[in-house]
Nucleic acid binder design. Structure first.
Lengths: 143, 143
DNA sequence: TTTACTGCAAACGGTTTGCAAAAGG
DNA sequence: CCTTTTGCAAACCGTTTGCAGTAAA
């Protein structure tokens, strides 16, 4: 049983070519992808045509089972998806080319506890995204 | 000349009742508001009816002049607006009641410089939002 | 009187949904 | 078989836009 198959069956989801292909695409992606990008990849490189709504439904369900994670990063109202490896992470987003770097470290330390002490909130998590220009775009800009 | 009037005229924008009222609403708000909320407030409490598109256009223009700031916090594809006081800030969002607390301190210290050293990115800014449950909702949940 | 602003209604783009047909177990 | 999943088209929802009319300077 392949890893993608395990993930799906283990969550009680049916194992279909579409879902398999979606997971493979996410596995090979080096950054979070939009539903649209996955949809195009399915048709173009995987040759497993699936309707856009299927892609959305599959992603939603897999997000519900923590197989994938949905993030909103770009602020343009477009969601991105990546494989969930259940690690705490942040993103460094290039404002020029849209490239996304995943940051595995977290600079927040015990800030959440500090905030709880100050505000009385019970903190369950945070999102930190950093914006800037990647080395390649910086080089291009200099010329 | 009122403060709102100054802000508008100083940016080369015309001073209209709609914009005046929008700014007053934002001044009295204790948290960021959506275009929809502002729209309703205009009709209901200010009695200055303005179409939703006028609200959006006014906010967009004022955002362009740094009179207001547009933030996306909730992840549901709904933008929020607040008066821009050009201060660096973060938000603490209650997942239960939607209440938003503005945090004026920033725990990031010189993290941006660290990141630049590690990645080669030129960092221009970051967004940090913290999610949890406010004291009131925690109390209710206990019962 | 010139230019910016407004209202309306229609368009837009990403996402969701209802329904009947197809496929998984 | 029974249940889930799929495709299609239409609905949705926040936001944007074209245009003709109105108000600010």
């Amino acid at each position: 049983m392949s890893k993608t198959e395990e993930r799906l069956r283990g969550s009680g989801l049916k194992f279909t070519k579409q879902r398999q292909a979606i997971l493979e695409i996410l596995e090979n992606a080096e950054q979070p992808l939009s539903a649209e990008q996955i949809y195009r990849d399915l048709a173009e490189t995987k040759e497993v045509p699936a309707s856009l709504s299927t892609v959305y439904r599959a992603l939603d369900q897999m997000a519900g089972k923590n197989i994938v994670t949905k993030i909103s990063l770009t602020g343009d109202g477009k969601a991105l998806f990546e494989l969930d490896c259940s690690l705490h992470r942040h993103y460094l987003y290039c404002l020029e080319c849209g490239r996304i770097l995943t940051i595995r470290s977290c600079p927040l330390g015990n800030y959440e506890e500090t905030l709880t002490a100050e505000t009385g909130f019970e903190i369950v998590g945070h999102k930190l995204n950093v914006y800037g220009y990647c080395p390649e775009c910086r080089k291009k800009a200099q010329k």
